[in-house]
Simulated assay, not measured.
Amino acid sequence: MDSEVIVLGSGIIGLTTAVVLAEGGRRVTVWAREPAEETTSAVAGGLWWPYRIEPEHRVADWSVRSFDVYAQQAEHAAVTGVRMRTGLQLGAELAGLGPWRRALRDMRAANSAELRGEYVTGVRATVPIVDTGTHLAHLRDRLTAAGGRVERRAAGSLDEAGRTAPYVVNCTGLGARELVPDPGVRPVQGQLVVVENPGVEEWLVSAYKDATATLYALPQPYGLVLGGTAVEDAWGTEPDPAVAAGIVARCAAIVPEVARARVLGHRVGLRPARPAVRLEAERLPGGALCVHNYGHGGAGVTVAWGCAEEAAELLEA
């Protein structure tokens, strides 16, 4: 009983945390309100890059650790869904990037021939791109192989989980707003379009921190992911045709060949934003130890492994 842990949430943060705990010898059960393929993680474009996440000094360590794990997983891309791809962050400058950039050994300023449109600055780097559908299935398989399991169950409260096991890890993302409750967790809606890839091999992004409209083209095995949006406090999950048309137009202005690409699908997800990630332990009224691991904004993929390992350490403290 003392080794049993309930992990709340089946997105990339929850499943990664569950894998770290189970492979570390814990008996882990994930309570999933919805299956992994219906979480926000499944909608994500999957690019490793800190975006809409604080605090910077902690994000750096989480991001670098996750980068290292993904780089190893990329050696088995067909199974893990992780690939290392070189690309271009338009509008960025080396001096303006956070300390997480130390993970990017090949990062350099883009030259004038590499820039697109009206952009006069940019940086090039090789980073992981995660096909989240494949990766979430991989994490589930690893969890099962380590003796863990996923149970379709929504927690009515943290105490309910604490009455079932002496340790709880809260990875409920936006759900923490009601479950904790934590009104500091707010949605940042993101819409994207998936098109047939017309031959784009490198990723391309322009996403300023506070911009509502962003621009990215991310090559994935299933198509080219075009984005996007970042609308604060918007709860809708139905794609807006006008927004989709705007996304394609923005991308086509930089990558003209996407204008004629066949549309394969539309996606909308709600990023779980918070002024700062909550990664800390507290004792629940019934005595169980709860570690909170939520509020990762637009960077759940980017920090998943670093945060999971720190969450595991907090359970041992």
Rank of each mutant, 00 (worst) to 15 (best):
P166M: 09
V150Q: 05
G227H: 05
E160K: 04
T214L: 12
Q72D: 14
G81D: 10
G11F: 12
A207T: 12
P198V: 08
C290V: 13
R85T: 14
R85G: 00
R267D: 03
P219N: 00
V59C: 09
G147Y: 08
G295M: 03
W31A: 13
A249V: 00
I254V: 15
A146N: 08
Y208Q: 08
E316P: 00
G223R: 05
R105H: 13
E37K: 05
R274L: 03
G96E: 11
R283V: 15
R85I: 15
R102G: 12
Q73H: 09
A74H: 10
A113K: 11
A308F: 10
Y294D: 10
R105E: 11
E114T: 07
Y208F: 04
G91Q: 10
D159E: 15
I53Y: 03
L204M: 14
W100H: 12
A245H: 01
T214E: 03
V19W: 07
G236H: 05
V28R: 05
V7T: 01
A176F: 03
A95I: 09
V7N: 08
P55Q: 12
S157K: 05
Q72K: 13
T40H: 11
I6Y: 00
Q73T: 01
R142G: 07
H292T: 12
L204I: 11
A92Y: 12
R65I: 12
L264D: 07
P239C: 00
H76I: 04
L284P: 10
E4L: 00
L90Y: 05
I6A: 04
E160V: 11
L314A: 09
R58S: 14
E93W: 02
R153Y: 06
R274E: 01
G9N: 04
A92Q: 14
R33M: 07
D131S: 07
G173I: 10
V205R: 02
A154Q: 15
L218M: 13
L88V: 10
V82P: 07
A137E: 14
M107S: 05
P239I: 01
P198K: 02
V225R: 00
V82M: 02
N111P: 00
L314M: 13
E56D: 14
G25I: 10
V28P: 11
A137Y: 01
T126P: 00
E232G: 03
A165L: 06
L270E: 12
S157P: 02
G122V: 11
R152Q: 14
Q189C: 06
E280K: 06
G246K: 06
V301C: 04
T126E: 02
R108S: 04
P272N: 08
R83L: 06
G117W: 02
L97F: 09
A230S: 13
